[in-house]
Design a binder for these strands. Structure first.
Ligand code: MN
Ligand code: MN
Ligand code: ZN
Ligand code: ZN
Lengths: 148, 148
DNA sequence: GTGAGATTTTGAATCATTCTAAGTACCAAC
DNA sequence: GTTGGTACTTAGAATGATTCAAAATCTCAC
């Protein structure tokens, strides 16, 4: 089931949208709620299916629009793996992604500051990077969803 | 201009294809030659345009086929950035990619073994990664192509 | 030279994403 | 409370990179 937003999350949404002169709408709230409910890096289509459970009339175009808006104001990150459909991640902490070869599931991998520093250090002088993306591909011990 | 393959490169091609039971064909040779001639991470379309200069009748489908074959036998790597067209890279040494925000050009960044190790070390137990992809996005001092 | 299998070619199909144009919601001014 | 402007949403069409299917060509062992 998809819970409502907590007070804190609603403020987070409100503030991030407000900063770029945009408003909280029922659709944006629904899509954001879906993203926070299950942090499993869903594709646009998965977000769309889930959002419809909560708001049956919402359109696919709107889901695309909301997600683009959220990326634009820094609420979520896009996650791309090879040529697969884009996935979305509401985890704002610096982290890498691990895609499980077998299940296709994407896991967050915490990224300690010293590793980020060591990565930056390999850039030759003159190269100035704003974004670093790191993705692993391999097998992950099943271990299933932690809580049930 | 697109040079012919060196003896060494032709053997490399021959051997890698042979290992997976495939043959050197004029088209494969042309596409491989194009990739080695300018190591600028061309898209399929760019490879196609360049290959036609050397072999006017070659088809786009064949370029796709050749590139897929090369990736399959480890002769080249695919390089993906966000949702852009796939690019191809014949540099087999471990390296990261830097995409220049302004020019769109993609540069190779050498990846020292200790940095690879530090990256592997952030994986929790149970995660076993075969492939690590690292890509930077930012500005690179123009500095143009080194040799002319 | 024949035939089997691999490769290439053309053109159609796929499918995630973007675009367009029309419809709604909201709000402030009158 | 009507009007008009603006932001937002919607349905459906368009796009474009990639993949697929089927027919043509090549290669090589026999
Ligand atoms: Mn917060
Ligand atoms: Mn070699
Ligand atoms: Zn994530
Ligand atoms: Zn490269």
């Amino acid at each position: 089931m998809i819970q409502n937003l907590t007070e804190h999350d609603r403020e987070h949404l409100q503030e991030a949208l407000g900063k770029s002169g945009q408003k909280v709408t029922p659709q944006r709230e629904a899509v954001f709620t879906v993203l926070l409910a299950e942090r499993d890096h869903p594709t646009v289509d998965e977000v769309f299916q889930r959002a419809r459970e909560v708001m049956p009339g919402v359109s696919l175009a709107t889901v695309y629009n909301c997600l683009e808006t959220f990326v634009g104001c820094g609420l979520v990150r896009q996650v791309n793996h090879e040529r697969e459909s884009t996935r979305y991640c509401p985890n704002l902490a610096p982290h890498a992604h691990f895609r499980d070869k077998e299940t296709g599931r994407v896991h967050d991998i915490e990224l300690p500051p010293e590793v980020i520093k060591s990565l930056r250090s390999i850039l030759p002088p003159g190269f100035d990077s704003e974004v670093i993306e790191i993705s692993f591909h391999g097998r992950a011990q099943a271990k299933d969803s932690p809580a049930n």
